[in-house]
Amino acid sequence: MATSPPTTERRSLKGSTRERRGDPIFRAILMVAASSVLLILAAMIIRTSIEAWPVFAKEGIWGFLTGRQWSVGTSRSEVTGTYGALPFIYGTLLISFIAIVFAVPLAIGIALFTNELAPSWLKRPLTYTVDTLAMVPSVVYAFVGMYFFRIEVWAPVGQFIAGTPAGEVPFLSGPVLLSSYWSAANILAIMILPIITAICRDVFAQVPADEKNAAYAMGATRWEVMSKIIVPHSFSGIVGATMLGLGRALGETLAVAVLIGSTRDMTSSVFQPGDAMTALIANTFQDAHPEAIWALLAIGVTLFFITMAVNITARLIVARVNTRVSGGAVA
């Protein structure tokens, strides 16, 4: 489908005048479509940054990012409260990171199983199930997490972990509460699982059959083929999938707001409640005074830049690894 030179040549040969006129118009439409993305993005960043500026100006950007106190004021025209976003930034990063740690290996496992091991009668149902999981609205995840998972699964598992010697580490120490970083991280892991799995499945399927067959011919076991051929070959795809998952985890709002417990202390244990950036915005904007709304927008701007940083890092990783891996593969 790509516009390769032969195609244009053939088209120009038998094209009518009308088509030649239609071509630039179509191109213009596509250009508008493409640039609209940039415009929307620019408008959003500029607009929110302007609205949030008084808060950054008062706290200082560094002060805003590292401040640990969040006490809203009631003014309509100036910033009177104290706005430090660190507890929320920490919470967002922590739960997203834990979610990735849980979800990525699981997703790779599911994808490898469906592609390589599953008998054909199981392949399709498995694929459909994962895809369906991706379509469940987050409010449903939120409620299932709130009324079932955290009570029946996560808290008991947390209790168990806190009871083992690992529980001596402050990060994993009890008491285990129902609303906690732990619960929020677990629901996120479930929510980002489908998208990571689906992408992994697709990139694994792209691995040339020749390479796999060659490995099998050399006497490689299935494990060796999967771990030495398929996964390294798909590394950039896996990173891409992880980043998409991370993006969703960073931005997920409702399920996190319901499960994280909304406490502005940065408690050291994952089994204690905390707060996240999206959760704070969703929870408090409705009843906020104007200056608190600016502060929430400042959080939004911060989240945007964090997401962007994640994206750029991912691209750098992919670029570096690609040169190394393809170099190695060729050699």
Binding site: D265, N283, D287
Partner: peptide
Amino acid sequence: GSEVDWPAGIGGNGNEG
């Protein structure tokens, strides 16, 4: 205030939460 800096405790959204 309608939103304060709570010294302790867990937050729930709305009366339902």
